[in-house]
């Protein structure tokens, strides 16, 4: 019986057992350990050893899970978004401040760069320093984007090929992991990032959203309004498949892209034919 307990074996065996072991039923482990383990004489020692072992084994398990590649990518894309937003907010602040000393004050990151190169007369030192920070943050965002563009195709080759690396990373970020994205039906992928609109719809006072974050994809954004629902549905369908292939096999399958392009050609052809009648089921999309 005690063969099943976490405490059998050396210290290393114990840590492994805590992470990967199992038992159908619990037992009176403290008593069994006191009887069988040479380094456990009483209950106090039992719980001391258990504490040591669970803390180290769980720390190792957390580190392993957090180092997983999709996790790194998700942190990077979230950091990228934060840097962009913060850079823009600070640029706005800078531009308002600079307006007090420079009637020609511009806006945005570009203006921050100009201000560093040619500070206006009477420009206080902290203003230049703020502008430097804005430019640095914008640069940091660029670096993060470069990292995402490098890593996304490694983590999720098919998803990245179809969606582009940045959108692929955003989808992973919204789903929480590649594992959970791979388990989502295409209808959910289609509206990821549009949760607010989706819940409004489920509560019954709004139409169903046609697309979430996949709107940033050229195939959706670049398609005329009447056909956008179809495009979003086609894209989401292929993305859901791509995520599953990436998760379960990891192999790159170029045919997914080819199939999608073919489907998009059909959808776009409707506009050329001047046929604005949509497929059944699209009218509400």
């Amino acid at each position: 019986m005690s063969g099943d307990g976490w405490f059998v074996g050396t210290q290393n065996d114990r840590l492994e057992r805590i992470r990967y072991g199992s038992a159908a039923q619990p037992a009176d482990w403290p008593t069994l350990a006191i009887e069988s383990a040479t380094d456990i004489d009483d209950e106090t020692m039992y719980y001391d050893r258990l504490h040591e072992a669970t803390v180290s084994a769980t720390r190792a398990a957390v580190q392993a899970r957090e180092r997983a590649d999709d996790n790194q990518l998700i942190h990077a894309i979230r950091a990228l978004k934060d840097c962009r937003r913060t850079a823009n907010e600070l640029a706005e602040r800078l531009s308002e401040w600079a307006g007090t000393v420079d009637p020609e004050a511009g806006t945005g990151i570009d203006y921050a760069e100009r201000l560093i190169e040619e500070p206006p007369a009477d420009c206080p030192e902290p203003m230049i320093s703020l502008a430097t920070r804005v430019v640095d943050l914008a640069q940091q965002a660029e670096d993060l984007e470069a990292y995402v563009e490098r890593q996304a195709p490694v983590v999720a080759p098919n998803l990245s090929a179809l969606a582009g690396p940045v959108l692929a990373a955003r989808l992973l970020s919204l789903a929480g992991s590649l594992d959970s994205l791979a388990k989502k039906p295409s209808g959910t992928v289609q509206v990821l990032g549009a949760e607010e609109a989706l819940f409004a719809h489920l509560r019954g006072h709004a139409p169903s959203p046609k697309h979430g974050v996949i709107f940033t994809h050229e195939a959706v954004r670049g398609t005329r309004l009447e056909d956008r629902g179809s495009a979003a549905r086609a894209l989401a369908g292929k993305l859901a498949i791509a995520a599953r292939v990436d998760h379960y096999s990891g192999e790159y399958r170029p045919e997914l892209e080819a199939e999608f392009e073919e489907r998009m050609a059909t959808i776009r052809a409707r506009a050329d034919e001047g046929d604005d009648k949509t497929e059944s089921g699209d009218s509400h999309a």
Binding site: D4, G5, W6, R17, I18, G21, S22, A23, A24, Q25, P26, A27, D28, W29, P30, L50, T54
Partner: peptide, 11 residues
């Protein structure tokens, strides 16, 4: 629960 029944005691 079987993934931690070898750690968590009964009762």
């Amino acid at each position: 629960p079987e993934t931690y029944a070898h750690i968590v005691e009964e009762d």
